[in-house]
Design a protein around this nucleic acid. Structure first.
Lengths: 356, 356
DNA sequence: CTCCCAAAAGACATCGATGTCATAATTAAA
DNA sequence: TTTAATTATGACATCGATGTCTTTTGGGAG
């Protein structure tokens, strides 16, 4: 690999002049510049970032710690890949700013994190992002790292700057759309409330009901859908029995995610209940492989993971340049509703029946 | 960030001694070592890889160019993510050897590659891997890079070391299993032969037939399945008509991939044809979200992407250390057959009918 | 108590790029 | 043509770690 000295010698100038040509930070005579540029081409000179960094103390590196890459291997079901989308958003911003991403994969083992962080420190990354695979709380043993840190899709107890999905607002937006279309008996079947997202979404569900002047009916809400087990089908079956047997059964069922909605479609079909004529269904996640493929296509709401990645990167960069101060609370990012034909418009229906 | 000089001063020794403690490359007296280690902890000293690299000329970095991360965003169908699996294999090997991965995403634009390669060169990566999203031929304008390069899931015309999936062997293994189970009329519906993988797999199909003493019948083979378009269903429908109308119809249909097999299941169901009682089905890819979920579960064969990633990384490392010489031909990696119940055992069946 | 030898520690130069300051070349003004 | 004001270039030191060589220290033998 040739150095700035080799170029200088070949061009018959001083190394400093070559540096000036490369960085364009000071005027260089036209003839000199051309000689230098020719020498650079000739020797295929590429400056060493290591040497540059020694003086400038700027590495141009952003470190990301994630399990996204190794985790894909375990995937046997058509789920979304939140962390990958987040990674993609980060990648976009970082590329725009001419920074370089160093990605360290935890290979699923949290205990590998300290070693990865050390490697990042050795390379003097200017900032760090930790990306979690689902919305959760995390706690790192490690003392405060030497550079700004942003958490994405998670948060901690120490107020580390964090970007999290706005589960509450998303579910609220979705349910608002349901009430706007005349639904007033809205069931909600979802996961174990131990997952951070679940109580938040229920809160959003309640707020939307309240905004529409609808009383919250606990009989319409079931939590505890067992993810990834054989009992999933049975649980759903029983929950369905329960809510359909209510004196005032729901006109629409909201599901914890799109996959659950897909299961529900199958269950309803075997019971001869039509979607959306007999009952409407809404999902969560806008996992397009499901939402667009189901018949009828599923109304759902998305968590804007790529956007979260972008915001995490933007926040990190502003922390690095000290443009912004640390936000005390996690930044919540909401996504939009995707309205498809799995939900009936009851307003329209009642008008039609009045008219007809 | 504290330096080796800060540590030396605090410990009251020379920087060189600190270096010896850190690297353990020369004996240091016990008391001195303890003083130094205390100072390192006190100052949270982490050596600078940039400075280290200046002298040693070893960066400990491996660069990967891929579109895997940005491409996930476009995914709307439940397909596999070959490049991500490859990335994961690479990651494994690289982590084992205490090297650091730098991942550059092309964001889908090939023209970004030169800039990414330059960044890698600036960081003096010791080796490069280019990961393609499907088996294809590639051509880079760029002159030979300054460090060893390995292609994964692709190859070029210049004999650059490459790791590719062994499409031929995979299909051959699958069809061998079919013939072993008594199938002799084996249809094959697949994609456009312009895709590199298609003719290779057909070749494997033919070799397996030949090995079983079965004549190749072109009427049983249809290529040109239109991927990702609205005509996909129609194409499959017509192809099915054609092969089922043959004087001697097939007992099993091999599909270009598992997704296509899934479509075929649906089509057969609407025609009242049972799988595997009336006809057997085999897939390709072992995309578990499909193969394990379909009823009956799908017999298929996998392309060992993670293994390819590992082999690519191993090959690269041996090229770097000059242990191995460049292979002149792409290294082909075959995967195993996953035998599930979508294929009937005709041998068993004929025995049973004889017995009964 | 000396002397010698091995072990331990240090001095110094070096890797490549660049900031600082000094000097040479060029142009404009007198 | 000379001088002042630019503009263009170069000399040198520096960033942090470490390879090479030198010096110091300590311990055992004589």
């Amino acid at each position: 690999m040739s150095t700035i000295y080799d170029v200088a010698k070949l061009a018959g100038v001083s190394p400093k002049t070559v540096s000036r040509v490369v960085n364009g930070d000071a005027p260089v005579g036209k003839k000199t510049r051309e000689k230098v540029e020719a020498a650079i081409r000739e020797l295929k000179y590429v400056p060493s970032s290591a040497a540059r960094m020694m003086r400038s103390n700027r590495s141009g590196l952003i470190g990301v710690v994630t399990g996204a890459i190794s985790r894909t291997a375990e995937l046997s079901d058509p789920k979304g890949l939140p962390d990958l989308f987040i990674l993609q958003g980060i990648q976009q911003v970082v590329a725009e700013r001419d920074l370089t991403l160093m990605i360290a994969d935890t290979a699923g083992q949290i205990d590998k994190v300290p070693a990865l962080l050390r490697t990042f420190q050795e390379h003097r990354v200017e900032g760090l992002i930790y990306v979690a695979d689902y919305h959760k709380r995390v706690a790192f043993e490690t003392a405060t790292p030497a550079c700004p840190l942003v958490l994405a899709n998670c948060y901690d107890a120490h107020g580390t700057p964090a970007i999290v999905p706005d589960d509450k607002a998303c579910e609220k937006r979705l349910v608002e759309r349901l009430t706007a279309h005349g639904h007033r008996r809205i069931a909600y079947l979802t996961f174990d409330p131990a997952m951070d997202a679940v109580p938040l979404r229920i809160e959003g569900y309640r707020e939307a009901l309240e905004a529409a002047g609808i009383a919250y009916d606990p009989a319409l809400v079931s939590t505890g859908y067992p993810i990834n087990t054989e009992f999933l089908h049975q649980w759903l079956d029983e929950a369905l029995d329960r809510i359909l047997a209510l004196p005032e059964p729901p006109t629409v069922i909201c599901c914890g995610n799109d996959e659950m909605a897909m299961q529900l479609y199958g269950l309803l079909r075997t019971r001869g209940i039509r979607v959306p004529e007999d009952i409407s269904i809404a999902g969560f996640d806008n996992y397009r492989a499901i939402a667009e493929t189901l018949y009828p296509p599923l109304s759902t709401v998305e968590l804007p993971y790529a956007e979260m990645g972008r915001q995490a990167a933007e926040l990190l960069l502003s922390l690095i340049s000290e443009e912004a101060s640390r936000p005390h609370d996690p930044v919540r990012v909401a996504g939009r509703v995707f309205w498809r034909s799995s939900v009936t418009d009851l307003e329209l229906e009642s008008q039609t029946s009045k008219g007809g």
